[in-house]
Design a protein around this nucleic acid. Structure first.
Lengths: 186, 186
DNA sequence: GTCTATATTAAGATAGAC
DNA sequence: GTCTATCTTAATATAGAC
């Protein structure tokens, strides 16, 4: 065929890698075109709204990813500890053992649209809720569970910042391992 | 006078506010000119290297700030607890109680120069060292002190990410308050 | 549905008047 | 030492061929 193309899933996955690395302002349509093998005009055909629309489509992908890999497993079968173990593995994968930045951090920097900020806030809140619920199931009181969830996400985000600045992923791996104790004990 | 101007300190202080908010790629010379009351050409007169040079001058300001407000007080007079208390106050001020983002996080995003990444890494390492030393003085072993320092900075960074995404500064204030227990106890 | 080509705007950067 | 004016490049975005 004349114009071998890529699926929307593939396109958005490559776009996500760019956006989580360089941020909203740091990614140009030329970069997106180069990284996906499409021309800029083709991007506008797929996403008439341009960069904003691509960004929001990426956010939908991120939300679906969290739903499938974090929220759903936490509500699934088995003991809270077992379920959290599965989520730990998914988080390790998504963040590449700490080598890849957090979308919520990098894209949460001012300069993006209000719609983007809303989407990020919404995912972050859902994540907090999901962690609080597993902690609640693990035997903690409502208010303690809520605090532990906040603490867990806060530490993961901080570990990813340290990893990015120092190029050291050890704190992230330590933080992931500490999740069961933080969310399920005492 | 015809052209009322601002001092270098004032200029860099305003530039810092822009850079920590919008990131390196997110700040344009036009923005810098508008925010400081100077024309773009005047910025090139002061900083012939353009945005890169301005950014690095801002980094020098940040380093001086950490030296004066964090590193020096930690090595100053009084008990470790007293010294840490002073630093807690300075951190609260610099991060505006959690309302302002961390320079190391926002500017650590890919897209800046290698020189910038080096400067950020260097400040982060000095901060780790300073926190580890106060923890050591507080009675902790070398390796524990080092871990606690890492944990402290990681939590502060994570709290600032949460604050930025959720618009909630409570986790940051809680994290600051927890510093003495984290760095000086057990 | 993708391409080439181009319009339009804003960015970084410089020349030269004052 | 700051200004106005301009250059050059790269960004977003569109028109129209295939």
């Amino acid at each position: 065929m004349a114009h071998p193309t890529i699926s929307d899933e593939e396109f958005l996955s490559k776009a996500l890698e760019l956006f989580r690395t360089y941020g909203y302002e740091g990614v140009s349509l030329s970069q997106l075109a180069a990284a996906t093998g499409l021309e800029k005009a083709s991007l506008y055909y797929r996403y008439p709204g341009g960069k904003q629309e691509i960004m929001m489509a990426v956010m939908s992908l991120v939300l679906r990813g969290f739903e499938q890999n974090v929220f759903a497993p936490l509500k699934g079968e088995g003991t809270p500890r077992k379920r959290l173990g599965i989520v730990m593995e998914h988080l390790r994968e998504f963040y590449c053992d700490g080598a890849k930045p957090c979308v919520m951090d990098v894209l949460g920097i001012a300069g993006g649209t209000e719609q983007l900020a809303d989407a990020l806030r919404s995912i972050m809140k859902a994540w907090l809720k999901a962690f609080a619920e597993i902690a609640r199931e693990g035997g903690l009181s409502m208010s303690v569970a809520r605090n532990r969830a906040e603490e867990a996400i806060l530490r993961l985000e901080g570990a990813l910042v340290l990893a990015r600045v120092l190029g050291d992923t050890a704190p992230f791996q330590r933080t992931i391992k500490a999740l069961p104790a933080l969310l399920l004990e005492e």
